[in-house]
């Protein structure tokens, strides 16, 4: 057991995979000598050399294009995009190729690459460094979209993503990178992609979230318990595509109430899909309308006002009370 931050845990997952399989490569801007702008690739250049931990020129589309082609020749590339805000420079590669090759060639060519990127807000960064674009990717058939919430699940999910036969968009919540440490076992662990977990069991209402919002939601759950005697169950989805509808519906059927929390904008956000799944499968179990606590449908403000935009425990508590008192 080691007490690790998410950055260190991700680094461990990369090193483990690279040690186990010489076909695993890491490529991206500043991943070598600089060890990644968040230091996720620390030590990899030193241990695996410049042919496996590859500093590229500044071109996101080329990083993914290379990843696709390297994949065709038998490698398992882990592509790092420096920030989610710059994943759009490579969006045509993701949309036109990464997600389609399996289908187009009926499995002759596949894209087993992982596209890692720092994700979300909350670190007082300048613009284009704080968005939460998961819904944009979750909407594209053929992509899996994973968002860990802590060091231990980050390490297990990154391992799963690397060994997954299909492309995985791996969003790493910046706000969680160094915000806390967690015990991470010595032996490699895997978590299944597409499955969420119950982060906090409860009876009265289901709070559904992922990524950096897990901590916010757990905090709200404590406040609901202490201040209002409400016992909230908190689900940590871990993947937003595929979505663990089974977990969501099983919980909602027990509690009869649900609130979805994410930092991305509301309109066509992952919350909309979650609510649709609940309405489709569990409508008759509902005691109240399902609430969403999300970012607003606006450009996220610059960092002086960023916290106004990001959901906080107070907003989660208020929405939950409305649901419970409906």
């Amino acid at each position: 057991m080691a007490l690790l931050t998410m950055v260190k845990a991700l680094n461990l997952a990369l090193a483990e995979a690279m040690r186990a399989d010489p076909n695993v490569l890491v490529l991206g801007q500043d991943v070598g000598q600089d060890e990644g702008v968040f230091r996720v690739t620390e030590g990899l250049l030193q241990e695996f050399g410049p042919n496996r931990c590859i500093d590229t020129p500044l071109a996101e589309a080329a990083i993914l294009g290379a990843g696709i082609g390297l994949g065709f020749t038998g490698f398992r590339p882990v592509c790092e995009l420096q920030f989610d805000g710059f994943s759009f420079q490579a969006f045509h590669q993701t949309e036109n190729h990464v997600r389609r090759f399996r289908s187009r060639t009926r499995g002759r060519y596949t894209c087993p690459l992982v596209i890692r990127m720092p994700y979300g807000g909350g670190i007082r960064a300048i613009e284009h460094h704080s968005e939460a674009p998961e819904a944009t990717y979750a909407h594209l058939a053929g992509l899996k979209v994973v968002i860990p919430s802590g060091p231990r699940n980050a390490r297990a999910l990154l391992r799963a993503a690397i060994y997954d036969p299909d492309p995985v968009i791996f969003f790493e919540p910046k706000a969680v990178y160094r915000s806390f440490r967690e015990e991470v076992p010595d032996e490699p662990e895997t978590l299944p992609i597409g499955k969420g977990v119950v982060a906090r069991p409860g009876r009265d209402v289901t709070l559904i979230t992922y990524g950096a919002m897990l901590r916010v939601t757990l905090e709200a759950a404590e406040e609901l318990k202490d201040g209002h005697g409400i016992d909230a169950e908190v689900l940590d989805l871990l993947s937003v595509a595929p979505l663990d509808g089974e977990l969501i519906n099983a919980s909602v059927r027990r509690t009869g109430r649900a609130v979805v929390v994410h930092e991305a904008p509301r309109h066509c956000g992952v919350g909309a899909e979650i609510v649709a799944r609940i309405v489709e499968d569990s409508l008759v179990y509902l005691e109240a309308p399902v609430k969403r606590v999300t970012g607003y449908d606006a450009i996220i403000p610059y960092f002086q006002n960023e916290l106004t935009y990001l959901p906080d425990p107070a907003r989660v508590v208020r929405a939950t009370l409305e649901t419970v008192r409906f």
Partner: peptide
Amino acid sequence: DATEFLRHVFAEPTPELRAQ
């Protein structure tokens, strides 16, 4: 101005933006 960012999304705010 904490709410200013919601006033500059479109020339004319949508009903959803007004509600937000």
